[in-house]
């Protein structure tokens, strides 16, 4: 399965990956429409004044989050860790303490289960048009 791999020697910390992730799932026609909006990307740039790197779901071989979810709302299908939105309760932050690496920061007002990565799940292909990923249907 394809994953987003991180090469921190090359990362400049520009946060464009976050915007592209949000845009790819936004159903918007133009990325500029995101201007001024709060975005909820599934990839996050972390770092300090010395080093930056982007972090997203690792779709672990042994996903503890899947095994720990009290609602059974996370599953791994064909190598992809997925959130089963219909099954989740309003908050699934129980899962967060089990995550071996990290996920997105908590977004208290939203479903915490959204802290999944891979905007390209659901077996979809990202088609590149004009250098930007075309929007895809949501879950």
């Amino acid at each position: 399965m394809k994953r987003v791999y991180v090469n921190e020697e090359w990362c400049l910390g520009c946060h464009l990956c976050e915007y592209n992730c949000a845009f790819a799932n936004s159903k918007l026609e133009r990325m500029a429409a995101l201007k001024g909006k709060k975005i909820f990307p599934r990839i996050h740039v972390e770092g300090d004044d010395r080093i930056t790197f982007a972090v997203s779901c690792r779709h672990c071989t042994d996903p503890i989050c899947v095994k720990s979810c009290i609602a059974g709302a996370i599953s791994k299908v064909d190598g992809v860790v997925k959130i089963d939105k219909p099954r989740q309760v309003r908050r699934v932050s129980d899962v967060r303490s089990r995550l071996p690496v990290r996920r997105a920061r908590a977004r208290r007002e939203r479903n915490d289960a959204e802290m999944r990565a891979l905007p390209l799940e659901q077996g979809g292909q990202t088609r590149v048009r004009d250098g930007l990923p075309e929007r895809r249907d949501r879950l």
């Binding site: 921190e8 972390e46 300090d48 672990c60």
Partner: peptide
């Protein structure tokens, strides 16, 4: 704040640069 910057580059390379 728990952050992945606390880890060494080697550990991060393992966690984020490959299959875990």
């Amino acid at each position: 704040i728990a952050a992945n910057t606390i880890f060494s580059p080697e550990i991060r390379r393992k966690k984020f640069g490959g299959v875990v």
